[in-house]
Design a protein around this nucleic acid. Sequence first.
DNA 1: ATGGTTGTGCGACAA
Length: 264
Amino acid sequence: MPITIATWNVNSVRLRLPGVAALAEAHAPDVICLQEVKVAPELFPIEAVKALGYPYLRLESQKGYNGVAILSRLPLAPIESRQWCTRNDCRHIGALLPDGTAIHNFYVPAGGDIPDPDENPKFAHKLDFLSEMAAWSEELGSDNRSIVVGDLNVAPLETDVWSHKQLLNVVSHTPVEVAAFERVVAAGSWEDAVRAFIPPEERLYTWWSYRARDWSASDRGRRLDHIWVSPSLRDQLRSASVLRSARGWEPPSDHVPVLASLEI
DNA sequence: ATGGTTGTGCGACAA
């Protein structure tokens, strides 16, 4: 059965409902994973997403900050949430598809402005979170079918940022973060579903700052949003894409949806 | 170097 999975940091699900509808209409993903839903769980627009054709929901959210959700056309079985960095800050949610494939949706801490864990506790939290993801990936093992998606807040490749040199000391592309990110990838033998179709030589971004006068003209983007699959799903991948045009939707998120299709 | 914008929710704080 072919299945399409989308991941999108919406920066408020309530403001981005028209965008979620546009995504559903244009690409008909079977599963939509959202980050930064920024809403108290009781205020999540459940009926609106049901009306878009997504009757199954897994939600881990709180008022104001963070929050992740999985919307699905297919039934979802819950995967027990665990604690990350001894906090309950709604950065991960998991679900099982009917065939047993696990989907894990992450919102990795952004890390603040100063790329020094001693000076900046937010950066320390980000590195700790990535370390825990590596340990978790190891525990998960590689003989099950798993998919990791989300806003991982790291742009690992030189072509994942508009200027490798100018971003070497900017949080999201520092060598220490990229190394931590690569340890997660190695621990789970994760396959980068997007780079499997869009060659690493090609520049590719999923986020453009709100602060640019003209995001498209300056095009100073970063690839912060990712879809990974376990080795057992590598040969099942069929396509992947980044919905750059969504950055122009009104009102825009600063992130755009990333999609992957596979045969499960 | 600095400042630029958006979101939550109504004051900062996070990104």
